[in-house]
């Protein structure tokens, strides 16, 4: 019997599917916080989410007949729901609305690891030369230079700025090695957004989001978003690029033990390059998150 999620986690908006990939009139089932949920879209294209009873993946359904619904939001191309009382609005990504950007979902990929471990991997630059060899990094250029981290109380998010790294092929549109600058936001315990220098336009930034759906404490689904300034590549190319990157992360994440993120500072060995991860762990602790983590013994 899985333990009930903490109140904070229970009341969060959680991503559950790429809206466009939900077939109208067909049921899709998935797990959220150990509960089976079912999703579909009505004839109007709006997603409907409910706690599943005996529905199976692929069943035909008329969304109108679902009366006991969970709350739903659609944002950034994804469908979000909440199992408790949704208190806050979903975090903003203002760039998503800019007219000349190519916005796309890049797939929903299951991972046998807790959602916070996946967030932490997304924040990490040190693994680029080893895991994303010759794409996001390459030996011998392995240094993670000093960067700034703060927890913004006003926006209730972790913010890492001035993150720099030498990358051989930073984006689909990159032609050679360049030092890229990243800004990372963690605006939601299981979501992160990064802004990186755009090879095509120096004044703007590409936006990549990772939204984790905590299925159980030790498994999750990663939903990827790209919002790019790229006038040359096709959406398929851009998706493939992101999926290649994620395909490299997945086996590493699945070999991490324990699978839940340990919040006790003495459970692992941090270095200066892990400043953002340390801030993230502390922020989760302060928020009272216990789902998908090993809380610090009080």
């Amino acid at each position: 019997m899985p333990k009930a999620p903490d109140q904070t986690t229970n009341d969060l908006w959680h991503v559950v599917a790429a809206t466009e990939e939900l077939a109208i009139g067909l049921v899709e089932t998935t797990l959220l916080l150990d509960r089976r949920i079912a999703l579909t879209r009505g004839l109007d294209g709006e997603p409907v989410v409910w706690l599943a009873s005996d529905e199976e993946n692929g069943d035909e359904i008329d969304a109108e007949t679902v009366l006991d619904r969970l709350p739903v939001r659609t944002a950034y191309g994804y469908t979000w729901t909440c199992l408790g009382t949704p208190s806050a609005e979903l975090f903003p990504i203002p760039e998503y609305a800019e007219a000349d950007r190519t916005n796309m979902s890049c797939g929903s990929i299951g991972i046998h690891v807790s959602a916070p471990r996946a967030v932490e991997n997304f924040l990490d630059m040190g693994h680029f030369p080893y895991v994303h060899t010759d794409i996001l990094g390459s030996e011998p250029h392995t240094e993670v230079k000093e960067y700034d981290v703060e927890v913004s109380e006003e926006r209730d998010e972790v913010l890492a700025t001035k993150c720099k790294f030498i990358q051989p092929m930073a984006a689909k549109s990159a032609t050679g090695a360049m030092e890229v600058e990243y800004v990372y936001r963690v605006p939601h315990p299981f979501c992160s957004v990064l802004y990186k220098s755009c090879p095509e336009d120096e004044s703007r930034r590409d936006v990549i989001g990772i939204f984790l759906q905590p299925m159980t404490e030790e498994t999750c689904r990663a939903h990827l978003l790209q919002s790019m300034i790229d006038s040359y590549s096709t959406v398929t190319d851009l998706r493939r690029f992101q999926q290649t990157i994620f395909g490299q992360d997945k086996p590493i994440l699945e070999n991490q033990y324990p699978k839940k993120l340990p919040l006790d500072p003495r459970s692992e060995t941090p270095i200066r390059a892990d400043k953002s991860a340390i801030a993230y762990r502390r922020w989760l602790s302060q928020k009272g998150i216990t789902y998908g983590v090993i809380p610090q013994a009080s």
């Binding site: 932490e120 086996p251 590493i252 070999n255 991490q256 033990y257 692992e268």
Partner: peptide, 13 residues
């Protein structure tokens, strides 16, 4: 122990 002290990744890989 099959675990890197840094982030817990298996050393056997």
């Amino acid at each position: 122990e099959n675990r890197c002290l840094h982030r817990g990744v298996r050393l056997s890989i």
